[in-house]
Amino acid sequence: MVRKLSTSSFYIQLYQIIDDRSSDQIISWNKSNNNSFIVWDLKKLRSNILPKSSSVLGKNMTEFIAKLRSHGFKTVVKGPGELEFSHDDFERGPLMKKMMVKALSERIERFDAQIKSMKCRLKAKEASLKVENLFQNLRI
């Protein structure tokens, strides 16, 4: 469950940084594609933006790019010092509906799996206690 929480945080924090008009010189939405963003200045992203964000996005450029790829983003090489990243479900818009629904669904699935696992462990513990009680009763 912790991983999915950080996954949702990743998308939300990335969206907020891209959507922040004050950082448009460094990182911004692609004007012609609602499903991609461009890092215009890799050095400034590394020195000005990544250190201010939590480690959810990565501590350095290598980690940032690796996290983007692990979350399904594709890299489109632009000019020197520029990179474009695209993702079919990561859209410019007020709520990123597709992405958030997907992240929440994954979180619910993982939570359900954890509950099932806890129930199984509880049943095993109860069975173990019953067996232990039976052995204690036999000693009397």
Rank of each mutant, 00 (worst) to 15 (best):
M1H: 06
V2Y: 14
V2R: 13
K4H: 13
K4W: 12
S6A: 04
S6N: 07
S8N: 11
S9H: 04
F10M: 08
Q13S: 13
Q13W: 08
L14T: 08
L14E: 10
I18V: 15
R21Q: 14
S22E: 11
S23G: 05
D24F: 07
D24L: 02
D24K: 11
I26R: 02
I27E: 03
I27M: 13
S28Y: 00
S28W: 00
N30T: 00
K31I: 12
K31H: 08
N34F: 09
N34H: 09
N35W: 02
N35P: 02
S36V: 01
F37Y: 01
L42C: 01
L42S: 01
L45N: 10
L45T: 08
L45E: 06
N48E: 14
I49F: 10
I49P: 05
L50W: 02
P51C: 04
S53I: 01
S53V: 06
V56G: 05
G58L: 04
G58R: 03
G58I: 03
K59F: 07
N60L: 03
M61H: 05
T62D: 11
E63P: 01
A66R: 12
K67R: 13
S70F: 08
S70A: 12
G72R: 05
G72K: 05
G72L: 01
F73M: 06
F73S: 08
T75H: 03
V77I: 11
V77L: 11
K78Y: 03
G79A: 06
P80S: 09
P80I: 03
P80A: 10
G81V: 00
G81L: 00
E82S: 11
F85D: 00
H87P: 03
D88S: 13
D89R: 09
F90S: 06
F90R: 08
F90V: 03
R92P: 03
R92W: 10
L95H: 15
L95K: 14
M96G: 15
M96P: 07
K98W: 01
K98T: 08
V101C: 12
A103V: 14
L104E: 14
R107E: 13
R107G: 09
I108S: 13
E109Q: 14
R110L: 13
F111C: 02
F111W: 02
D112G: 11
A113H: 08
A113S: 13
I115T: 04
K116G: 07
S117F: 08
S117M: 10
S117H: 09
S117W: 05
M118S: 11
M118E: 10
K119P: 00
K119Q: 12
C120W: 09
K123H: 11
L129W: 10
L129F: 12
K130Q: 09
K130I: 01
V131F: 12
E132D: 08
E132L: 11
L134R: 08
F135G: 05
Q136V: 08
L138R: 11
R139Y: 11
